[in-house]
Computed example of a mutant assay.
Amino acid sequence: MGKPRSIHRRYQREFWPAMAAYVAIMLLLWPLLPQVHNALLKLAMALLPVAAVLLVVRAMVRLVLGSDELEQRIHLIGLAVAATAVSTLSLAGGFLAAAGIIKLDGTILIWVWPTLVVMYAGGRRWASRRYGGAADVLCDNGVAVHWQLLFAALVIAAVAGLGRHQLGDHQFGMLCGVSGALGSGALLRAIQHWRKRWRGEHEAS
């Protein structure tokens, strides 16, 4: 039990700072790109989010490699589900754009990776339940889900507060909404966790 717990703790230490850096870069630095005229500096700022993404991927790969065979199989199924869903959506979007039904530009590519991560999380959750394991994504034997959701809500709220003068009303409102949704999710998961724990202690007594 000690080794899996240490692996997941390491994952938490590596994943969340990298993810917070990605969010901060996208919301605080990217709006400044139109004001940058130096070609090299603009190139570096444009590719900076990729560095944060690579750190996130590194944390996930280290988690998978440190897991047992069942966990690795669950991760593989989640990745297969994500790859199938995202590639199918991309194909459908390409055909619709080619037919002139919808208009897409290059910025749509920015959403490929976040969509892949969300689909991967859902696929892994489904596979974990199918094999009778915990349904929590990437946090089994790690920090409780409600604490992770609360941390994410606080990070996004901090980014919104720090970048208030650089963000448009739409971006600021979106961040506040996401932060509020994550905070509400954290509260609901915390209530479920505490109720389950209270029932276990009550039945044991």
Score class of each variant (00 low, 15 high):
Arg62Cys: 07
Pro49Trp: 03
Pro31Phe: 10
Leu32Asn: 05
Glu69Gly: 09
Leu32Phe: 05
Leu32Arg: 13
Leu76Phe: 12
Ala85Tyr: 04
Leu54Cys: 04
Ala21Gly: 05
Arg58Glu: 01
Ala46Gln: 14
Gln72Cys: 05
Ala85Gln: 04
Ala80Asp: 08
Glu69Trp: 08
Leu70Ile: 06
Ile25Ala: 08
Pro49Cys: 01
Met60Asp: 00
Leu54Asp: 00
Leu55His: 08
Leu43Trp: 14
Val57Arg: 04
Arg73Phe: 09
Ala24Lys: 02
Gln72Phe: 05
Val50Asp: 06
Ala20Ser: 02
Tyr22Gln: 12
Ala24Tyr: 03
Glu69Phe: 00
Val23Tyr: 10
Val36Asn: 03
Val53Leu: 14
Met26Lys: 09
Thr84Val: 11
Glu69Ser: 10
Val57Cys: 04
Leu47Pro: 07
Ala51Asp: 04
Leu54Gly: 01
Leu70Pro: 00
Ala44Val: 15
Glu69Asn: 11
Leu28Ala: 11
Arg73His: 09
Leu43His: 10
Leu76Asp: 03
Ala85Ser: 10
Leu43Gly: 11
Ala44Ser: 12
Gly66His: 01
Met45Leu: 12
Leu70Trp: 05
Arg58Phe: 02
Val36Cys: 02
Leu54Ser: 01
His37Val: 08
Gly66Leu: 03
Arg58Lys: 15
Arg58Ala: 14
Ala52Arg: 04
Leu32Cys: 02
Ala21Cys: 13
His75Gly: 02
Val61Tyr: 02
Val36Thr: 02
Val81Asn: 11
Ala51Asn: 01
Arg58Met: 05
Ala39Arg: 15
Val64Thr: 10
His75Val: 05
Ala83Cys: 03
Val36Ala: 02
Pro49Ala: 08
Val36Arg: 01
Leu27Ser: 13
Thr84Ile: 08
Arg58Ser: 07
Asp68Ala: 09
Leu28Gly: 12
Leu55Gly: 02
Met26Tyr: 00
Ala83Asn: 06
Ala80Lys: 13
Gln35Val: 10
Ala59Gln: 09
Arg62His: 07
Leu40His: 14
Ile77His: 12
Pro31Thr: 07
Leu65Trp: 07
Ala21Glu: 07
Pro34Val: 08
Ala80Met: 12
Leu28Met: 08
Asn38Val: 13
Leu70Lys: 06
Leu63His: 06
Leu40Ile: 09
Ala51Glu: 00
Val81Trp: 10
Val53Arg: 01
Tyr22Ala: 14
Ala52Pro: 06
Ala83Trp: 08
Ala39Thr: 11
Trp30Gly: 15
Leu54Thr: 09
Arg58Leu: 07
Ala59Trp: 11
Leu41Met: 08
Ile25Lys: 04
Trp30Tyr: 13
Trp30Glu: 15
Leu28Pro: 14
Ala52Glu: 06
Ala80Val: 11
Leu48Phe: 13
Leu70Met: 09
Leu29Tyr: 03
Pro31Ala: 05
Leu79Asp: 09
Leu63Gly: 08
Leu54His: 06
Arg62Met: 00
Pro31Val: 12
Ala59Tyr: 10
Leu41Ala: 13
Ala46Arg: 01
Arg73Asp: 10
Gly66Lys: 06
Leu41Gln: 12
Gly78His: 09
Val81Gln: 10
Val81Arg: 15
Leu70Phe: 03
